[in-house]
């Protein structure tokens, strides 16, 4: 059995990522839980997130998820953070004013276009949220990119993006008005801004790679 714990802190749709993982093999056992011992005894951990960061962080702290994620990374257990899950790993987010985050990865979270308008290279206005399928350039090789062509399209939906302080942790980047971090990696932690569970073949391949990953890179 390949046991995957999907961390449940009451924010949003965990059905999609669970079903996507379950579709990848009869030996995959997915558990949606907030229980520390269940999470830490799993073979690998998915740290999802949707919605506003202030509400997410409040629940993460209330349920002690911050400690669990830190312990999992210290134990070199494979962890995949998705969307707001990725943003929550940074030091802080500009969303909802200013929200301190977990600080497992150095850097901040900022709004597309700041308080003004986001423009593309030709001066055209870009819509926010960044919603839809965009290319992800793989800035380094990584076991989670295996079998996925460089610049493949993944599904994004977000208004805030991660600005990493340590460029050596960059694993993938996407252009929307400017380049931003689509994927970061550190030890057994891999974080993506896009939704692999909604990104059809490429997304499923990334999840398949995650299920096979030993946490080293």
């Amino acid at each position: 059995m390949n046991r995957v714990a999907v961390i449940d802190y009451g924010m949003g749709n965990l059905h999609s990522v669970s079903k996507a993982l379950e579709s990848l093999g009869s030996d995959v056992q997915v558990e949606i839980t907030s229980d520390a011992s269940r999470i830490l005894s799993a073979d690998r951990i998915v740290f999802p997130g949707v919605g506003a960061i202030r509400d997410c962080m409040a629940e993460i702290l209330r349920l002690g998820i911050d400690v669990i994620v830190r312990d999992a990374v210290d134990a070199r257990k494979p962890v995949l953070a998705i969307c707001v899950g990725m943003q929550a790993l940074m030091q802080s987010s500009d969303e909802n004013g200013y929200v301190p985050c977990l600080g497992l990865l150095p850097g901040s979270v900022q709004r597309f276009g700041g308080s003004g308008t986001l423009l593309d290279g030709q001066g055209n206005r870009l819509k926010v949220p960044h919603m839809g399928w965009n290319n992800v350039h793989q800035t380094r090789t990584h076991p989670l990119w295996q079998g996925i062509e460089d610049n493949s399209r993944f599904y994004f939906v977000h208004s805030y993006f991660v600005n990493p302080a340590d460029q050596s942790q960059l694993a993938g980047e996407t252009d929307y008005g400017h380049r931003f971090a689509a994927a970061l990696s550190r030890d057994s932690l891999f974080a993506v801004q896009f939704h692999p569970e909604k990104s059809q073949h490429c997304g499923l391949q990334l999840l398949r790679n995650f299920l096979a990953w030993n946490g080293q890179c």
């Binding site: 059905h15 999609s16 079903k19 996507a20 579709s23 599904y155 939906v157 939704h195 569970e197 909604k198 990104s199 059809q200 997304g203 499923l204």
Partner: peptide, 11 residues
């Protein structure tokens, strides 16, 4: 909706 979401991995 449950059945679609279990088999179709796009939004």
């Amino acid at each position: 909706v449950e059945a679609i979401a279990s088999q179709v991995f796009i939004p």
